[in-house]
Design a protein around this nucleic acid. Sequence first.
DNA 1: CATCACAACGCAAACGATTGCGGCCCGGCT
DNA 2: AGCCGGGCCGCAATCGTTTGCGTTGTGATG
Lengths: 347, 347
Amino acid sequence: MTEPRVVRMTAPTLRDVAQLAGVHPATASRALNPQTRPLVNADTARKVLKAAESIGYQPNPIARSLKTSRSSTVGLVIPDLTNPLFPPIVRGIEDVLTPAGYNAWIVNTDNDPGREETQIESLRSRQVEGLIVATARREHPLLVRLQQHGVRMVLINRRVDGIELPSVAADDDTGIALAVAHLAALGHTRIAHLAGPQQTSTGVARARAFRHAMIDNGLGDDPALTVECGYWSESEGAQALRRLLDSGAKFTAVVAGNDLIALGCYDVFAERGMTCPDDMSVIGFNEMPFLDKMRPPLTTVAIPHYEIGVEAARLLLDTLDDPERHPRSVLLAPSLVVRASTAPPRG
Amino acid sequence: MTEPRVVRMTAPTLRDVAQLAGVHPATASRALNPQTRPLVNADTARKVLKAAESIGYQPNPIARSLKTSRSSTVGLVIPDLTNPLFPPIVRGIEDVLTPAGYNAWIVNTDNDPGREETQIESLRSRQVEGLIVATARREHPLLVRLQQHGVRMVLINRRVDGIELPSVAADDDTGIALAVAHLAALGHTRIAHLAGPQQTSTGVARARAFRHAMIDNGLGDDPALTVECGYWSESEGAQALRRLLDSGAKFTAVVAGNDLIALGCYDVFAERGMTCPDDMSVIGFNEMPFLDKMRPPLTTVAIPHYEIGVEAARLLLDTLDDPERHPRSVLLAPSLVVRASTAPPRG
DNA sequence: CATCACAACGCAAACGATTGCGGCCCGGCT
DNA sequence: AGCCGGGCCGCAATCGTTTGCGTTGTGATG
């Protein structure tokens, strides 16, 4: 007499485990969950675990979410995944989140506030427990509202004016200071800054750091030597440099707000028959991948991408653990990577 | 007498809508869903919609998933997000999926089959309705099993031997043919191939295409001029080129399996004091971002990344609509982008 | 007038887990 | 013997939707 082997097409459920172990589903639930396991007899717990194992039981996260309104999931809000800066950060985030039992849900906003709002709405409706946000602007009503609603978040790279949120970023001050000091040491005295968008905290922080560094190096601060880019992009960087050159300002070196802006300069050099670093030195920020293979290899301020992700994830886990904890912020030390886009000014 | 305004901290639910509209939740559900709306009186439907609107009702996707075992979500399985090839593809996928009411859940496998399995398991437990897989290997038991289980998928870039699945990829044959023809036209006769991993269909397809193209151009096929890379990476590309150079083989040009492998060659050139294209021409494949700014700018076979994403998403939506439909596959035409890494061989 | 068809809607049972509460049993105490 | 207190465990409600089925009411028909 063979056992009637019922072929179930649907995944095994908690009921199945309970039935197999000869206990009530509630007991099975408690036995499976390490938190509540002490509530059940050690022997029955063992039985349940064995039963679960034997039929390959996997808890259904959807049912669990519905009941607990938690999801073991966090949202990752990124302005543009195409920017090679972000993938390594994502990697760091996932490497912390995964061992902690969390998954990350990545969304792109394309720098569009409308898209950002619907994306975040969608994340929230899926019960994400927290957000890691890389799209912050200095004025950011949406993030303010979320904070008021008690949404757990941590910001990366950029911050929001006037609210306190945990954040992790590179230390822009020392990064820019390194860049300016390097150029000054090479003998440059007239240095321009292609600033990032001034709606982003990073854009203003770097611009401010640039002024300070210029003064500290005794190079004065000529406002005519700073121009703003509308986006952190190559094309905006190119535009900004064109404006600056056309303005007739004299300078021999450029501190770009980030690497993409710096690469935009390369395009202008090609257009105008200038050569870098002979006619103009350029320095970037971020150390995105492949800079070493550029023409010329770009000198830049390196920031620890992976660690930024790691710290951001840790901070978020901390706030999830203890929402009342005072918001911490982490500043990571940058370092200068000297390549071939910087040289002494042409005598 | 003022109305008792109860402040609810929790999001409005279908019950609330129903109550407000004076109908049963079931009716509200039917009214809200365009599919079932004809089942309810037009007037009540209007009332329900108005009520939902007025309290800002958003259906809870989790509850819906639990009941329907669907999720309006598809999984995106990527070997390595750090490879700049993928972000544009992701963009294309999302641009098709979003208007169709689907969301994409991106996971990284880091080229690790174990990680791949757990990631896919996690996606499935979240009820994703389909998978877009960029990690296929020629032997891929996991994907075979998934297909047998009736999981809807489409493959991008790479395929699995022996099973028929919808897929979208660039036309490797014509891409490689373009590359070889270009080099032949420049006068190269001894051309090497740094092949991608031969466990991937793309790796063998391009290697095979290379042999054919060589023969077609009357350049013979010398097996000694093809070496295999273990991964699609810079470091593996560099290693492969070193092996080839050390073998004493003579050649004046390299067709790399993809851009990363080609960029790996640049490192070797630097090590050994060779200059490109004077000492050696190199051609890549994929047209990843920023190649135009490399030293030297890399000649490559461009593939339509964005369209690959678009087509993949469309194919997946098709299979979701009609699971029985015969698997279609899409081949997209590549084109050659000539830059400065290729030149006539040194006389 | 009895019957029937059909449109419109409500009832209640799912989906698969979690959890407060209460019940049972057993050992130890007075 | 009676009582109490835990330790274990089961009961049943619950999370928010969807959906098969049954009920109601209405107009048309024989």
